[in-house]
Design a protein around this nucleic acid. Structure first.
Length: 307
DNA sequence: CGGCAGGTGCGGA
DNA sequence: TCCGCACCTGCC
């Protein structure tokens, strides 16, 4: 679906770097695990924002059968939200002085979580109560302890592990990877997936409220993580019902030009301004801010980002 | 060296 | 339902 902005979709300035994905203008590489199989995925941009065209190349140790290749393609389509129709969103943005310029600069950007539900859950756990640098360190330690490496197309990237593999490890093995008290959470989550009690495909069909309830039952998932999951993994554009402490400071500046505004005030404001599009809108404003910060450092943001 | 970070589960009011 | 507290680790 047009408009589709390849570069703004595959590269999010606010995301922490991770060795399972890499990109350059017009190209994106990642590993993708589907059950026991690990694939290399390469995407190339062959169109432009108003006439999008993508080339997908799939790498594997043995040639994938058509069904497996189709499954990878379907996942790419879902994870980059390629079928999204953002017509209503564009109309909304046009009349908003904060959102408008951000959408103009990143027109056609989609949400992007190039991970499965289980994998993204691991990401939310390493984000908890940690600075960015430490999150990166924990994630990379987990890749080296439980994940693997896949070399394809002249690159070598990390890949995630199967939940069963991590679930079988003793807690000390995880603690040795410097994840601290998160070891218990990682073990319990992996065990939940090993048992097959959480089926991502099935969960995608649920409504937001029921889905949220199911996710909150997962050990280690609270209000902040569930918001990230609902938006990034399940594409609920309105999943902005909680503000984590560090984002509260950023939205206070963006929306009110103040140091710290109560969370409830921020939530009421984004509902009023952006309604059912509020998380997608916030995503645009956020990525635009971080993107501009990379080009030309924004002093107040620099102070908030503890590396 | 104590405080704190891109939260969460738990026990008690 | 709401609140206070502990929690790995590493930086400030």
């Amino acid at each position: 679906m047009a408009p589709f902005n390849f570069d703004a979709t595959v590269f999010k300035p606010s995301y922490f770097p991770s060795s399972d994905v890499t990109f350059e203008p017009g190209r994106f590489w990642s590993t993708m695990r589907l059950g026991p199989h690990v694939f290399g995925v390469k995407l190339e941009n062959h169109g432009d924002t108003d006439a999008p065209a993508l080339d997908l190349c799939i790498f594997s140790v043995v040639p994938p059968d058509p069904a497996a290749a189709g499954a990878v393609a379907d996942e790419v389509r879902w994870r980059f939200d390629l079928d999204a129709d953002l017509t209503g969103f564009s109309t909304l943005a046009a009349g908003d002085p904060l959102l408008g310029p951000a959408v103009e600069r990143r027109r056609g950007m989609r949400l992007n979580a190039f991970q499965s539900l289980y994998e993204f859950l691991v990401i939310t756990v390493v984000l908890q109560n940690a600075t960015v640098r430490r999150s990166v360190q924990m994630m990379e330690n987990l890749f080296s302890g439980f994940g693997g490496r896949a070399a394809f197309d002249g690159r070598e990237l990390s890949c995630f592990w199967e939940p069963a593999r991590l679930a079988a490890a003793p807690e000390e093995e995880l603690r040795a990877l410097k994840v601290g008290y998160r070891a218990k959470t990682l073990l319990r989550q992996a065990a939940a997936f090993r048992g097959g009690g959480l089926d991502e495909r099935e969960l995608r069909c649920l409504g937001k409220d029921e889905l949220e309830g199911r996710l909150l039952k997962v050990f280690g998932v609270g209000p902040a993580s569930v918001g990230y999951l609902l938006f990034a993994v399940f594409h609920h554009y309105d999943a902005f019902d909680t503000v984590p402490p560090w984002e509260q400071k950023i939205y206070s500046q963006l929306l009110f030009e103040a140091d710290l505004v109560p969370a409830a005030t921020i939530l009421a404001e984004v509902r009023r301004r952006w309604g059912p599009w509020r998380m997608l809108a916030a995503h645009y404003v956020f990525e635009d801010l971080f993107g501009r910060h990379r080009q030309e450092p924004i002093p107040w943001l620099g102070k908030l980002l503890r590396l």
